Amino acid sequence: MNTKIILKPKEDTTSTFSIRIDKSLLSRFDILSNESGYSRNELIKFAMEHYIDSVEVLKKDTKK
């Protein structure tokens, strides 16, 4: 996918929750965090927003 993600200044309207992810994915976020200067949390938030904006849910075919 060649879609660029634009990093914008952060906002202060947050909630906290936890998730479990593979250590390799966490490592990739840490590397990007170090390279970009954004926190791991901010980058994961941006990734989640991008996913929600891009996902399409297919409905089950009710005819069988």
Results as ranks from 00 to 15, higher is better:
Ile21Lys: 14
His50Phe: 03
Ile21Cys: 15
Ser27Arg: 15
Lys60His: 10
Ile31Gly: 04
Arg20Leu: 09
Asp53Gln: 02
Ser24Gly: 06
Ile52Arg: 11
Thr62Met: 11
Phe17Ala: 06
Val55Tyr: 04
Arg28Thr: 06
Ser39Thr: 13
Phe46Trp: 00
Arg28Ser: 05
Asp61Tyr: 12
Asp53Leu: 01
Lys59Pro: 04
Asp61Asn: 15
Leu32Gln: 03
Asn34Gly: 14
Asp30Pro: 03
Val57Glu: 14
Ile44Asn: 02
Ser39Lys: 11
Val55Leu: 02
Leu25Ala: 14
Leu32Ala: 10
Val55Ala: 06
Glu56Val: 05
Ser33Tyr: 04
Ser15Asp: 06
Thr14Gln: 12
Ser39Val: 04
Ile5Phe: 11
Tyr51Phe: 09
Tyr38Arg: 09
Ile31Glu: 13
Ser33Cys: 09
Asp12Tyr: 07
Glu42Trp: 03
Ile5Gly: 04
Thr62Gln: 13
Ser36Asn: 08
Ser39Arg: 13
Thr62Cys: 07
Asp22Phe: 12
Ser27Lys: 15
Ser15Gln: 12
Ile52Ser: 10
Asp61Phe: 10
Ala47Leu: 01
Tyr38Ser: 03
Leu58Asn: 08
Glu11Arg: 07
Pro9Asn: 14
Lys60Cys: 05
Lys63Asn: 11
Ser24Lys: 13
Ser18Gln: 12
Phe46Asn: 00
Asp12Gln: 07
Ile5Ser: 08
Glu56Ala: 04
Lys10Trp: 01
Tyr51Leu: 02
Ser33Leu: 07
Asp61Cys: 08
Ser18Tyr: 12
Ile6Pro: 00
Ile5Asp: 05
Met1Lys: 14
Gly37Gln: 08
Asn41Tyr: 03
Asn34Met: 12
Lys10Pro: 00
Ile44Glu: 00
Ile6Thr: 12
Lys59Asn: 11
Phe17Gln: 02
Lys60Asp: 11
Ser27Asn: 15
Ser33Met: 09
His50Gln: 03
Asp53Asn: 05
Met48Trp: 02
Tyr51His: 02
Lys4Val: 08
Phe29Ala: 07
Ile19Ala: 13
Leu25Trp: 10
Glu35Ser: 12
Met48Ser: 08
Lys4Ser: 14
Tyr51Glu: 03
Met1Asp: 15
Asp53Arg: 01
Lys60Leu: 10
Ala47Trp: 01
Ile6Ala: 11
Ile5Arg: 10
Lys64Met: 07
Phe17Leu: 06
Asn34Leu: 09
Ile52Cys: 05
Asn2Tyr: 07
Leu43Met: 04
Asp12Cys: 05
Thr14Tyr: 05
His50Pro: 00
Met1Arg: 14
Ile31Tyr: 13
Ile5Pro: 02
Lys45Gly: 01
Ala47Ser: 09
Asp61Met: 12
Ser27Cys: 13
Thr14Ser: 09
Ile5Glu: 08
Gly37Cys: 10
Ile19Met: 13
